[in-house]
Design a protein around this nucleic acid. Structure first.
Length: 562
RNA sequence: UGAGGCGUAGCCAAGUGGUAAGGCAUCGGUCUUUGGAUCCGACAUUCCCUGGUUCGAAUCCAGGCGCCUCAGCCA
């Protein structure tokens, strides 16, 4: 018996964990496991980052190791403290804790400078006076080797002097660059004397104007990993070709800790743009209200839309980690959200497109308090009271005067159940001059209180409803996918791909009175309609709900077929 | 056309010489006071292709084909 339990609890392994297991067996890092999540603070975190966060923190937890949060802030032009704040809050919300291990690459600027000086002394770096365009010409192409810079053979002394003067601010941007002296004929373009430091007279979000030279990613990243004694530096596939350079810097500088870079495939999702550049464009050009717009694939957007961190973590676990490029179907994400929300969310009745329902044989002025179950998936969730009276609202989509076959909600002469209340039968409709239905009339069977008949009579449809006199008015925002294309990253002009119908605002929606005072972030399931989350824009006199996800609508499929 | 990676179902993904896990999606059916959820069932004679080795190949070998990444003083 315990055997099956163990099998059930076995963690799914992946190739990264295999590498770590192997390292632990051979004692490569003395059994230590240290990872890091290293975002550049130049935008908000999105669902793609969640995969990396879950991976890095998950591995650290599994092996009893540590995971650092490190801001890779080596390019002052793009970075901002607004982004570091949002990143910290999103990582926490996802449920991960870096404890006291929060670092910045900019913390290491002095050390990195000294490493660069060391490189020069070793004869492995030189100051190059070529401009950007010339460097590109000298670099050669994928099929032709590059040629050496005329400045490649400067003396160590001259290089040291020039590099010091670069730091002192004696040269304008773009006039000189420190380069690693490797091999201009390398088949790997990254090894053709890559830049190590560039001049940028720019204000840095943390170091201010202290520096006017900044290290490049390849130089700063491997050394930051080494300084923090990271054992496994996990990154995405596009850095695979940088690994020889990662190792070159660490080998040449003979550092004590030499982490291993491991690459995995980044997350792509159908119908979802993950490019930070494009997401930034959506924000700055105001196609969305901000980084946390519920249509955005950002962590904060998803949170505002009512996605839970548990569900996002589950998703990251299910998609797996491999080296093959892949595009996960967004239906898997939605499945994870539904599974979680179905288990935990309060059921509430809501009417998006209200139409008056009058029960003619129900006494005027009478009201009843009926018990409605809070969550059939959770036996501890209990019941709540809903008021019932002669005048109610139902959703206009739940009534058809001439129903097609297969429709089993309300239509003239057909008996249906009002959830948790009574069986009712439509007797009449009232119309205005334009043939629009303004009111539906019905009769109820007093013997069916609670929604069951004691003569065993069954009913096919169950409608949700709210009491007309004490329901809550709300604005409901229906969010669809922001993008229509299956793979928007492949679309050159992605803005043409934004779905203009992706946000539909419904005013005058009616919710049952239990929704009064709902706090932002409170997620419920409106019976039959989907999952909804109280938006942060809600106030005491205006309830704003975001639709997290619709329920799977089987009726829609039935009607499509016929 | 250089180098480095990667090809298992509609989408992810296990599998590492012993006869193709699992999840999503889809399609049936059951149940239901949500047309949701639940439950039950179906869904790769074959792993990019072609040869070879072997009693036996998705796994090993050879040769093809396809896709991704790299020519920033971005990360």
């Amino acid at each position: 018996m315990s055997e099956t339990l163990e099998i059930k609890e076995t963690k799914s392994s992946d190739f990264i964990r295999e590498i770590i297991d192997n390292d632990n067996e051979t004692g490569k890092h003395a059994g230590r496991v240290a990872t890091r999540f290293p975002p550049e603070p130049n935008g908000y975190l999105h669902i793609g980052h969640a995969k990396s966060i879950c991976l890095n923190f998950g591995i650290a937890k599994q092996y009893g190791g540590t995971c650092n949060l490190r801001f890779d802030d080596t390019n002052p032009c793009k970075e901002d403290t607004e982004y570091v704040d949002s990143i910290m809050s999103d990582v926490r919300w996802l449920g991960f804790d870096w404890q006291d291990r929060m670092y910045y690459a900019s913390d290491y600027f002095e050390k990195l400078y000294n490493y660069a000086v060391e490189l020069i002394k070793l004869g492995k770096a030189y100051v190059c006076d070529l401009n950007a365009e010339q460097i590109r010409e000298y670099r050669g192409t994928l099929t032709e080797p590059g040629k050496n810079s005329p400045y490649r053979d400067r003396s160590v002394e001259e290089n040291l002097d020039l590099f010091q003067r670069m730091r002192n601010g004696e040269f304008p941007d773009g006039t000189r660059v420190l380069r690693a002296k490797i091999d201009m004929a390398s088949s790997n373009m990254n090894m053709r004397d890559p830049a190590v430091y560039r001049i940028r007279h720019a204000h840095h979000h943390r170091t201010g104007d202290k520096w006017c030279i900044y290290p490049m990613y390849d130089f700063a990243h491997c050394l930051s990993d080494s300084i923090e004694a990271i054992t496994h530096s996990i990154c995405t596939l596009e850095f695979e070709i940088h690994r020889p350079l990662y190792d070159w810097y660490l080998d040449v500088l003979k550092v004590k800790d030499h982490p291993q870079q491991i690459e995995f495939a980044r997350l792509n999702l159908t119908y979802t743009v993950m490019s930070k550049r494009k997401l930034l464009q959506l924000v700055t050009e105001k196609h969305v209200t901000g980084w946390d717009d519920p249509r955005m694939p950002t962590i904060s957007g998803m949170r505002r839309r009512g996605y839970t961190s548990e569900a996002i973590r589950k998703f990251c676990e299910l998609i797996g980690v491999a080296k093959a490029d892949s595009t996960v179907d967004v239906s898997l994400l939605e499945h994870c959200i539904r599974e979680d929300l179905n288990r935990r969310s309060q059921r509430v009745m809501g009417v998006l497109r209200p139409i008056k329902l009058v029960i003619d044989n129900y006494p005027e002025g009478k009201t009843e308090e009926l018990d409605a179950i809070n969550n059939p998936e959770d036996s501890d969730a209990g019941y709540r009271k809903v008021t019932f009276s002669r005048e109610l609202y139902i959703d206009s989509e739940d009534f058809m005067e001439e129903p097609p076959k297969g429709f089993y909600r309300m239509s003239p002469g057909k008996e249906v159940r009002l959830k948790a209340a009574y069986y009712v039968t439509c007797t009449d409709v009232v119309k205005d001059g334009q043939d629009n239905i303004t009111e539906i009339h019905c009769t109820y069977d007093p013997e069916t209180k609670g929604g069951t008949s004691n003569d065993g009579r069954k009913v096919k449809g169950t409608l949700h409803w709210v009491n007309a006199s004490d329901c809550i008015d709300a604005e409901v925002r229906l969010y669809g996918p922001l993008f229509k294309s299956v793979n928007p990253s492949a679309v050159e002009d992605f803005l043409t791909d934004i779905n203009p119908c992706s946000l539909q605002v419904l005013k005058n929606c009616k919710l049952e009175k239990s929704m009064a005072g709902g706090q932002a972030g409170y997620t419920v399931q409106f019976e039959r309609l989907g999952y909804f989350c109280v938006d942060q824009d809600s106030s005491d006199d205006k309830l704003v709900m975001n639709r997290t996800l619709p329920l799977k609508d089987t009726w829609a499929k039935v009607s499509q077929k016929s």
